[in-house]
Nucleic acid binder design. Structure first.
Length: 436
RNA sequence: GGAGAGGUCGCCUAGUGGCCUAGGGCGCCGCACUGGAAAUGCGGUAUGGCGCAAGUCAUCGAGGGUUCAAAUCCCUCCCUCUCCGCCA
């Protein structure tokens, strides 16, 4: 992912301001601009010499064909000229390569400027755009007095829905084992979400590999920036996906679409593996922060003029899932310093978990505009025969399972310790309640 | 894992050191012919960089090497296909 050179030259001010808004050092923008000037000078010099060398080589061929002796003085002089040019080219190209590497490194450190309607500031500037559903209280009034909603891990332990201790035994902490009704709930949720996105929202279902190669990890920016976030199978140089975004976005790396093929909208299930380095000791109870979880991800490839609208639609598709599940949630418009380096605009969906009395992030819906597409060279032809342009990419969870499961358990728990099954999931669960 | 074959401009294919700045066919686009169409004919038809432009440079799976010159020769790697072995 990176900023485009053309844009860097055309609107450095906006990019500089974008960096400031995201809390990054804007001086890289000027440094990159200077390097870009140097690159063009070197490139011009090198190409002029290459043209000379090519001409000389061609002339050697023509002379020999015309009858000159291959070892005669005429050919020797041409050969010398070509060799000399070659030596200078070698030096120039080495310098050029170094300059380009440096430039690329800098471009990678210039963030994608946020859209104009994104609030500037840190997380305190995040805006709650809308809320849906009833924010349930922890204490519930009932005929026989009151009862208190418990955290999901207590309910789940009684209902034998997952087993964290044995997960820790066989793998490590943060690797839950879902059992019995908990296991079926996983299956039901994945099925339900994919059905809604494909049959009702018209997305194409994808079931991608859970490991990707280095080129793919680089494409979506997992390496080199977020390498310590991922599990790596070093022996085979493969990376366990932290989200289906990685394999699915890479589906179309180095491809050119015709305009009538867009938009392309995928819904993909995958397990997600995250080391969560730096989060040790946070959210250790239950399944609020785990190293392996399941997720249905939406990934869109759009024409640039439609991406703004597409983000709203995508976010609303994730909301449909929460609404069908009957879970209270709120939509946050993330502020510049809280939204991430590569996003132009991002909404987070947070679901209310009444047992732990917290808003849990279950979806993050982003528009990357052309920033991600540039790195992966994903383009389209606006008109037949026209010059290819970068597409816009978007993605969003729809939804992440573990936290959604926690919210379901805490929302649907009953006074007697059992759990009601959300109506939308009953056909998939083939039961109305868990326990009793 | 072993043996063999192969990766060329959307698809098929030609091309064993210099008229290859890659030829032909199919498909596609434009024009001509036609009442309209088919057939036919003519022209066009990769991507990226630099340049106001003319143009120029790079790319024949990827990377490196030999050479004045590489699709072509050498080395390493990747992928596909066939056969064998192993296997959910």
């Amino acid at each position: 992912m990176s900023i485009g050179l053309a844009r860097l030259r055309e609107e450095p001010e906006r990019i500089r301001q974008g960096a400031i808004d995201k809390g990054e050092d804007p001086s890289i923008v000027d440094a990159a601009l200077a390097l870009e000037g140097r690159r063009r000078t070197l490139l011009g010099d090198s190409e002029r010499l290459k043209a000379e060398r090519n001409a000389a080589s061609k002339q050697i061929g023509e002379s020999i064909r015309a009858g000159a002796k291959p070892n005669g003085p005429e050919v020797a002089a041409l050969r010398q000229a070509s060799t000399d040019a070659g030596a200078r080219i070698e030096k120039l190209d080495a310098e050029l390569a170094a300059t380009e590497a440096q430039l690329e490194d800098m471009l990678l450190r210039i963030p994608n400027p946020a859209d104009p309607d994104v609030p500037v500031g840190d997380e305190s500037a995040n805006q709650v755009v809308r809320t849906w559903g009833e924010v349930l209280p922890k204490d519930v009034a009932a005929e026989g007095g009151t009862w208190t909603r418990r955290p999901h891990w207590e309910v789940a332990a009684d209902l034998k829905m997952f087993d964290l201790e044995r997960g820790a035994k066989i793998t490590g902490s943060g690797f839950p084992v879902y059992t019995g009704p908990g296991s079926r709930l996983q299956r039901a949720l994945i099925d339900f979400m994919l059905d809604v996105h494909t049959e009702e929202h018209g997305m194409t279902e994808v079931w991608p590999p859970a490991l990707v190669n280095a080129a793919s990890a680089r494409g979506t920016g997992q390496i080199p920036d977020k390498e310590d976030l991922m599990y790596i199978a070093t022996r085979d140089e493969l990376y366990l996906v932290p989200t289906a975004e990685v394999p699915v976005t890479n589906l179309h790396r180095d491809e050119i679409f015709e305009a009538d093929q867009l938009p392309i909208r995928y819904a993909a299930y995958s397990p997600c593996f995250r080391r969560e380095a730096g989060a040790a000791g946070k959210d250790t109870r239950g399944i609020l922060r785990v190293h392996q979880f399941d997720k249905v991800e939406m990934v869109f490839f759009e024409k640039p003029e439609n991406s703004t609208e597409a983000l709203e639609w995508l976010t609303a598709r994730a909301e449909v899932i929460l609404q069908r599940l009957g879970l209270a949630y709120r939509v946050l418009l993330m502020a510049t310093r809280d939204m991430g380096f590569v996003q132009a605009k991002k909404y987070d969906l947070e679901v209310w978990a009444p047992g732990v009395e917290r808003w849990l992030e279950v979806s993050s819906c982003s528009n990357f505009r052309d920033y991600q597409a540039r790195r992966m060279a994903i383009r389209y032809r606006p008109e037949p025969g026209a010059k290819p342009e970068l597409v816009h990419t978007l993605n969003g969870s729809g939804l992440a399972l573990a936290r959604t499961v926690a919210a379901i358990i805490e929302t649907y728990q009953q006074a007697d310790g059992s759990m009601e099954v959300p109506v939308a999931l009953r056909p998939y669960m083939r039961r109305d309640r868990i326990g009793n």
